[in-house]
């Protein structure tokens, strides 16, 4: 394991070098909130943030993404043929992504990259992305990453981890892609691994101590789905829900999409847009029948998927990294921590 010290004075310079080989994305303050945006040449990411308003999942998985184009003009030779749209899959880097958001990519990966099916759009974008994480020294009150299989200094899903040490960043290089990234920036000051490891460990303990909210998930696996499904608490949980898509769109691990064709005169476009299990249209059949027609059913689906079906199917914990966005943004304050605990301790 290599550790590099990056003097903050050489930060801007390094990023400039990186621009040559990578499209850089980083947290940028827009009005009162931070968002992941493409950094223009010379633009610096703003690391003075708790967590971005929306998750950075859209960098790899845009809210609206084109798939094919076609022409309906029969005078053209290739009419009615779906044609791939050229997209930029050159190397890109997410600088300053929080460990929770980086971990979320691994959860999403299990949906888009299976032995049987590989989603070409997501996978190509994912494979062209370097995850340069920023350790989280100042978690929010709604963060519960440590009990959601993650943590403020969590390394899974990252190519390197940056730790802010005041004057310097310490970069812990985790993969060969991370190695190339650092090389490309021109940061070369290697530092003693034992000392660096110690600093990082101390900071990690401090950060983890700051996390004040937790969920218990240990019993979820042992519950019967059908019992949880029929549990009496859903009406209470769902009452306030207005069935907007805020939680699902803000969530770094929600992956559902809907495919749409749009045609204008004789040219057409096929694209996919984020969809949300909160919408009635999500499950509406062509016949007009909707098997999930009430808001209680939809709310239940969201939580059952994240906290039960996923747990059973993939066996690696809940489909949640504890970033707390859905808690902060929900217009009516439906709190996944409360729901998770109710599910976990439910005895029929």
């Amino acid at each position: 394991m290599r550790f590099i010290t990056i003097d903050k004075k050489s930060w801007a310079n390094g990023l400039e070098n990186l621009c040559e080989n990578y499209r850089l994305f980083g947290p940028v303050r827009d009005n009162n909130h931070h968002f992941f945006k493409k950094l223009a040449k010379g633009e610096l990411p703003d690391f003075n943030y708790l967590n971005t308003r929306l998750s950075p999942k859209s960098i790899v998985y845009p809210q609206s993404e084109t798939m094919f184009e076609y022409s309906l003009d029969e005078s053209k030779e290739d009419h009615h043929i779906l044609k791939e749209i050229n997209k930029d899959y050159s190397l890109q880097a997410l600088i300053g992504i929080r460990p929770c958001d980086a971990a979320s990519y691994l959860l999403v990966k299990c949906n888009f990259d299976t032995p049987e099916y590989k989603d070409p759009y997501w996978l190509r974008a994912y494979e062209s992305t370097i995850f340069a994480g920023l350790a989280c020294g100042n978690p929010r009150s709604t963060c519960f990453c440590t009990s959601a299989g993650c943590g403020p200094f969590h390394e899974d899903g990252l190519d390197l981890l940056l730790v802010d040490e005041g004057e310097n960043f310490i970069a812990k290089i985790l993969t060969s892609r991370g190695e190339n990234f650092i090389k490309s920036a021109g940061w070369e000051t290697e530092t003693d691994p034992t000392a660096a490891e110690k600093i990082i460990k101390d900071m990690k303990i401090k950060a983890e101590e700051k996390i004040a909210s937790f969920v218990s998930t240990d019993q979820l696996k042992n519950k019967l789905s059908i019992k949880l499904y029929d549990a009496p608490f859903w009406d209470d949980i769902a009452f306030a829900c207005i069935n907007c898509g805020t939680c699902t769109y803000a969530c770094p691990t929600c992956w559902c999409f809907d495919i749409q064709d749009e045609v204008s005169s004789s040219s057409g476009l096929r694209m996919r847009n984020w969809d949300s299990c909160m919408y009635p249209l999500f499950t509406l059949h062509g016949s007009g029948y909707n098997p999930r027609n009430t808001k209680m059913q939809r709310v239940r689906q969201r939580f059952m998927h994240k906290l039960k079906y996923y747990v059973d199917k993939y066996g690696d914990g809940i489909q949640c990294v504890g970033c707390g966005r859905c808690i902060r943004l929900c217009p009516v304050n439906i709190d996944i921590r409360r729901v998770c605990d109710m599910m976990n301790k439910y005895e029929d």
Partner: peptide, 8 residues
């Protein structure tokens, strides 16, 4: 005016 959607 909406022709083709302006999306990613």
């Amino acid at each position: 005016i909406k022709t083709m959607p302006r999306v990613a």
